[in-house]
Each structure stands twice: as structure tokens, then as C-alpha cells.
């Protein structure tokens, strides 16, 4: 596993939506494959099951289902990869994983559907008082 991740590089941009889609699935599969070792590293057996973690990862990806620009998908994949690497390399601690993927979903990361059709004012209002 470890050598595989070490050799990860920033891939060239996806040429088409089809390619970006393929990469997304590859990324998801890689994340799923790492779940047992992640459970092991962070000692998550008694708080979560592998299937729950899988659906949590899937939910993170589905959150951006509306994105159609391959460049944006590449960027999101890159960010996902970064996060993935941090998790697998034990750069995080147990409470990070529990906080982000097990309990308080949406507390740390915004898992709600994107606010479609609301004004910028309201978006800023939800974010903070100073925007």
C-alpha cells in the first residue's frame, strides 16, 4: 500500500469528462481498498464499520455530483487525494477521523447540499457575520 501511495503524482489534466469520471472511480476504489488499514491504524473497530466509512467517502464524492467541468473535477480529486494521503500516512489523529467521517458529518466539512438558487448575501450570512 505504502509504496503505491508514495509513487502518486499529480496526473495530467483529464481530457474529457469521461476520463475525469474514470479517475473519480479509481480514486474511490483506492480509498475503499485502504479502509481496512485505516481502521487498523486509527483503531476504529469499535466506533465504525467499514461499510459506514465507505458510504461516508461516497457521500463526500456525491456532494460534488453536479460538477461537470473536468478541470474542476481534477482539482477536487487532487484535494481528495491530499486528504486521502494524510489519512493513510497517519498524518491525522484518531479524533480527526472520528470527527470528520464518523460522527459530526457537516461540522468540519460542509456535507449539506450546495445552496442552489440562494443569494450571495445568504451564503455569506450562513458563513459568518463578517463577509
Amino acid at each position: 500500500m505504502a509504496h503505491l501511495i508514495r509513487n502518486l503524482k499529480v496526473p495530467p489534466n483529464s481530457a474529457s469528462l469521461e476520463e475525469a469520471r474514470k479517475r473519480t472511480f479509481e480514486f474511490f476504489r483506492m480509498a475503499c481498498r485502504s479502509i481496512p488499514s485505516v481502521m487498523d491504524i486509527y483503531n476504529l473497530q469499535d466506533v465504525v464499520t467499514p461499510s459506514e466509512l465507505r458510504s461516508s467517502v461516497a457521500a463526500q464524492i456525491r456532494k460534488n455530483a453536479h460538477v461537470t467541468n473536468p478541470k474542476v473535477i481534477d482539482m477536487l480529486l487532487f484535494k481528495g487525494m491530499e486528504e486521502f494521503r494524510n489519512v493513510v500516512e497517519h498524518s491525522k489523529q484518531r479524533h480527526h477521523i472520528i470527527g470528520q467521517y464518523v460522527v459530526g458529518k457537516g461540522l468540519v466539512q460542509d456535507l449539506e447540499p450546495k445552496d442552489e438558487g440562494i443569494s450571495n448575501f445568504l451564503k455569506n450570512f450562513y458563513k459568518s457575520n463578517y463577509a
Binding site: S119, N120, F121, L122, F125, N129
Partner: peptide, 21 residues
């Protein structure tokens, strides 16, 4: 949040959006 911002946000959700941001 500031008072007027709350009312402005509430107006948008209630469907009578106030015209000032």
C-alpha cells in the same frame, strides 16, 4: 449576526426577499 442581516436573511427564506444586501 447583525440585526438587520438576520431579518434580511429571514426575508429571503420566507420568500419576500428585501432588496438591500
Amino acid at each position: 449576526r447583525d440585526d438587520w442581516k438576520i431579518i434580511r436573511a429571514l426575508s429571503e427564506i420566507s420568500g419576500v426577499r428585501l432588496p438591500y444586501d
